[in-house]
Design a protein around this nucleic acid. Sequence first.
DNA 1: CGTATTGTTATATA
DNA 2: TTATATAACAATAC
Length: 265
Amino acid sequence: MPELPDVEGFRAVLDEHGRGRRIKDVEVLDASVVRDMSGRAFVRAVRGGRFGEPRRHGKWLLTPIEDGPSGDRRTLAAHFGMTGELLWCADGEPRHRHDRVVFTESGGELRYRDMRKLKGLRLTDDDGVARLLEPLGPDACAVTAGELGERLAGTRRYVKTALTDQSVVAGLGNLLADEICWRARLDPRRRSDGLDRDEVRRLHARMRSVLRAAIPTGRVPGRKSWLTGHRDEDPGACPRCGTSLRHSRIGGRATVCCPHCQPAE
DNA sequence: CGTATTGTTATATA
DNA sequence: TTATATAACAATAC
């Protein structure tokens, strides 16, 4: 589930319920989601600290741990993989089977919940954060049309594949890429380096509008006016023109598009 | 026992 | 060597 809008929602949760607050306790219920250190060492390094101001780049959520026990400046770096989430739970809410790490504050707790555990949490310093972000392209919320065009021109892969490549632009996943291509009326199998200037501008404009619409709800909505709301229907009708949607597979991922609105060139 | 899954990355291939 | 494609990862659900 987590694409840019979801991670932005997790950032908001941490901003509201974590920022500036004391971490009274940390429970590592499944140490396999803690990367590069033992669960015990993680607890030792975080317990007693305070969450700083969280920021996001692409699908990474980065939060300084201030006034921590070790004294040196550390950052909690979270990646949610395909099934991760961060939630605030008031005192007394029963644990979920997939709660992996719990940060206890006064009045409630922040929980990293993840069924599949493809990614996880790590603690790192500023250099480590830089190393994490170094391979990523600009954040999808911040990239300019010119920059996007340059980056898309740098590869001959399908435009959908390029959009979901975090080193081209950071934050888009399978669902957003389909939604953006559909709104921009571009066949996802168009070659990334074969788009003309107008097509790139359209792609950029639709990317921005899709993100703007999705971020307030903290998720990619399944609204009926969205292609995304029809991707699991068989075959499903294009919300814009009613044509039967085409279901296929691009780069190993399920893909939905409208053969009428997104004609192959 | 098959099929599928919204992300990333190591490995294979052209 | 490089760019791109594919398999694998974990834990489910159908």
